[in-house]
Design a binder for these strands. Sequence first.
DNA 1: TTGTACGCGTTATCAT
DNA 2: ATGATAACGCGTACAA
Lengths: 339, 339
Amino acid sequence: MAVTMHDVARLAGVSVKTVSNVVNDYPYVRESTKAKVLDAIDKLGYKVNQSARNLRRGSTGLVCLAVPELKLAYFAELADAVIAAAEKYDRTVLIEQTNSDKERELRVLHNSRQHLFDGLLFSPLELGQEDIAQFHVDYPLVLLGERVFGAPADHVTMANTEAAVVATEHLLALGRNRIALVGSHAGEVVGSAGLREAGYRQAHAQAGLTVDECLVREVGLWHRAGGAEATRKLIAERIPFDGIFALNDAMAIGVLHELVGAGIRVPEDVAVIGFDDVEDAQYTQPSLSTIDPGLEWIAQRAVDLLVARIDEHLAGQSPAPYRHEVAPFRLVERQSTAH
Amino acid sequence: MAVTMHDVARLAGVSVKTVSNVVNDYPYVRESTKAKVLDAIDKLGYKVNQSARNLRRGSTGLVCLAVPELKLAYFAELADAVIAAAEKYDRTVLIEQTNSDKERELRVLHNSRQHLFDGLLFSPLELGQEDIAQFHVDYPLVLLGERVFGAPADHVTMANTEAAVVATEHLLALGRNRIALVGSHAGEVVGSAGLREAGYRQAHAQAGLTVDECLVREVGLWHRAGGAEATRKLIAERIPFDGIFALNDAMAIGVLHELVGAGIRVPEDVAVIGFDDVEDAQYTQPSLSTIDPGLEWIAQRAVDLLVARIDEHLAGQSPAPYRHEVAPFRLVERQSTAH
DNA sequence: TTGTACGCGTTATCAT
DNA sequence: ATGATAACGCGTACAA
């Protein structure tokens, strides 16, 4: 059977409270007693029972990060950054994959393992503005991404539209004026697709150009395969283009693969830019220009906010006004848009 | 305050036991009472308190997966596969990153959040054969990877040496006989590096060739940057080579990047093969030949074994003999080794 | 089929 | 500086 505080207390000849004091670094413990207790702990191989501690404390020290898919480099890097940020607060991160499944997103939010984590960092993909009521939960929640705005929760986003304007302007400045957009979600207004596409259009408008709609290519799931397929079609349909703005790096990688495979030179024939600045972008052939959306910043800020909310929640305070924070972004120029 | 079973019981006009019965799908509950209880649960928004349940049950339903780094595509894909496999058993996966830090690996194994998870799936990188005593833990443990053999735990591995033989033979069959090895760990015997290098050497020996030692390149951390750097050096030192076996795909991606960047044609001038069959391997330029080590199989099997051990542990049985299972692998031919 | 009462291992509130 | 004791919320003998 597992060894408990009582066992330790008995062996050390003290009360459980004293053992608890030692374990929790309560300052007013005589050195000699502390030594006795530590000795007993060592002898018995005692480990705190987290379940009991959690029950008593009413919190678990766990923070949940819910993302669509870890296989997507962006989310793997986000998870990495969140874990690092949470560590500073001595908190463990529980990762949930929602697999772009609405059911699962709802489950994370509601049923899920309630009371298992103290707070949730949620990056929804399927739930949208119309589901805003769902985000009314009674535990600390911080939203990531651009699917939902105005929910009763803190929200950390990136400057999608502004960054997309910069990316598009970068291509335009290269003298490209038939820039294909890869990754559009028709009819979407909020959401990364909608917001980034808006930037693409805005940059064109500001340059006095009209967008040729047959250059705007729909891709549902932003995976490499989608980018590759969109490019194949673009080529097959003999639509002329001299630039491609892929709405994320995964698709851009697929785009590059197809272009180079088809003997189209990048950037000479077609300049390509992505979005995310995933590590892989440095190692594509040619290396990929992209937008660094401030991932580290986002992770750090989101964890800061969440931890603050958790403390607030545990203290029984009523919530301070919700905040919406936007990460600073940066254009990263590499070979795929060199001149 | 959070709503408890007592609140539900009171509202439904039954005892807590009945509420508990309903919540846990105990079959012998009258339909009418069940309905009353469910109704009350709904009205109050009651959620089971996991901490209390865990304490009472003596288990948490959590399984921990400890990997070096999620940013490495291989581990992200492993995590994905493990989460999927665990789901079949209704178990949640807690991911710990050890960042190739020995301290952290020990912490996961020992201090860590004992009693927070029911079992551990551990892929060590720094701990090795000399630390085998450390693996003597009193909770269910399944080892992944090739750092430690003969520990008192189930172990799921891949056929490193055999697969490396196949990869090397594949290059040799192309007529390449100056094959550089990227990712060596000098002096390592077990461990992915040692085992795969052994396969490389074995294939050469079987073909009656001797390995030119200046083709064997050391890379500590198997990241893209390491592969790129090794390739740069190989070129700078003017060492002739017509093939490269990178010991994982991340390095192979770095290798490809440097080769193509230096104007060396792949596969015409230099054929390249990797190891892991990460999704990215399909999208490099040219696409990367590699070894599919049976990741899904590994994840599934590891979870099966772990869950079995957990059940055994909870039942208080003494452990059945430990098993060592080896996943089936497969050579994946792509453009980087086409002829 | 349902209710009562106790214990899981901690931490918190008092005392002393 | 330390000890006795009562919660925390749930599951489960045992009883009814």
